[in-house]
Design a protein around this nucleic acid. Sequence first.
RNA 1: GCGGAUAUGAUCUAGUGGUUAUGAUAGUGGCUUCCCAAGCCACUCACCCGGGUUCAAAUCCCGGUAUCCGCACCA
Length: 548
Amino acid sequence: MPQDIYDKIMMLAKRRGFIYPSFEIYGGVAGFYDYGPLGSQLKNNIEKIWREYYLLKDKCVEISTPTVTLYEVLKASGHVDEFTDLTVDCKKCKQSYKVEDIIDEKLSVENAIKEEKVKCPNCGVKLKDVHPVNLMFSTKIGIGKSRDAFLRPETAQGIFTDFHLLYRYAREKLPFGVIQIGRGYRNEVSPRQGAIRLREFSMAEAEIFFDPKDKKHPNFEKIKDEQIILFDNIKETKITFEKAVKDKVIDNQALAYYIYLTQDFLLSTGIDAKKFRFRKHGENELAHYATECWDAEIYSERFGWIECVGIADRSAYDLRSHIESTNTDMYAIKKFEKPKTVKIKKITPKMDALGPLFKGKAGKIKNILENMVIKDITKLLIEIDGETVEIPDNCYEIVEKIEKQAMEKFVPHVIEPSYGIDRILYCILEHSYNETEKKGVEYRLLKLNINVAPIKVGVFPLINDQKLVKIAREIDLDLRNAGIATYYDDGGTIGRRYARMDEVGTPFCLTVDHETLKDKTITIRDRDTTKQKRKKLDEIVVYIKDKL
RNA sequence: GCGGAUAUGAUCUAGUGGUUAUGAUAGUGGCUUCCCAAGCCACUCACCCGGGUUCAAAUCCCGGUAUCCGCACCA
């Protein structure tokens, strides 16, 4: 079988300690990969740069929440219902079945369960304990009296469920952003596409909360003349962010700003600008929580255009869902410059009439009436416990009041940039991969950006002479003490050592030679040109630091 | 999930019923004292897993797992 670039990269990745298939000695499992020593460093470096963008440039705050997530949270967020299959287990046959596969075709799944017509296709036993299963990994918290839970399909819900605390931390001012980097899980039906579609993957997500009437970003002015690399499903174009927002290509400044930030971040990690674009989701493509969504797509020779980042306007969807399920106060407050005085009509229930008429329901009705917004009413109809009830007019009075309002409450909207770290990492490897020939032999080179390269400097003595070795080891230690990742190597020949460093993307190599003993200089070799310069020994640490 | 192909050291690969399981690359130790995978010597490492057929299985059969290609599913 001819090897394509993916095979070559995965071969190199395995050989050199970037990526290993997980549990390989037990046959491996699709959708799981390990990061080896260099892969872990590469991933750390990508996440480090990402944090610089979101924590420093954008002043977000970072939190860390559990991967095991309570059923109710994901029920409220819509994830439980989004792609659910109902299944049952037959204890006798020790088999699981999808309910819809084993019931009479005429019955709906709901009715089959209600009427207890779910039977094991193998032994005919009536099956109970129907439980939903979907693409989320389910688990239980505790033993015996346990609670249902899932491994989270996104880190975002951890941020939403802490919103009221974070809003207070942000001193009750909008906009503010919260980030989280962590693992997410999806029990993919068929995880083809190797390292690109994983069942456990690393996500970096930011949730930035805005006043829905003011989706402006304070930094937008500075970046408005930058250009977005845009794909409209027909061709690629470039327009400025300012024009994109003005023409409503992008709905609002906030969304536009994070699209810009994403573009800048990805290009700074070494993604090739020619293999990069943004694409807006069509309406039928949108996830259940999104009103507008942009994908950063990165081109892979093997997989085509891969979605690596999704930037969604989730509006008030999630916070509103959690308010509805828990009654937690997740509103933001906007104080008016001057308090408004408003005439409002309010209903005052007359309990002496209401009570005898509605008995047990009277309390609930009272509550609803007192919180109603009143328009012109001829008939007062309310919904209670699924019924519509008419309230006779002797049961209430409408009173007009003048109230002072100093503020209004609203559910903030959220803009969510969500990054698939593993996909970005693979794309960086693919875009960095170069193949040439040296003396007729295949020569592999990773042109990793210095910021993401797991090793920044290789340090060698030209020959294995103790005088040279001693100096080389000292330089190696100096660099590491200065926070620079190095790799010391005195094995084999000098050419082999350079080749090894080229293959793992190390941008610089320092070699101590005989001249070093005479004039205290050292050669520094550039990975991409293989050219060498001599530098003073005592200037080398500063010289390398400046490049970072 | 369905159908097809594939599975031999870290990597690439020879072997199609009986081999000490082939070769190369990479790796390790040494020699060489050397600026781009040089050379020499030595060494380490493999038949995907489980059953079956057979005197004998890396080789044939069945099942599983993984990878790749279609289809379906998902975003």
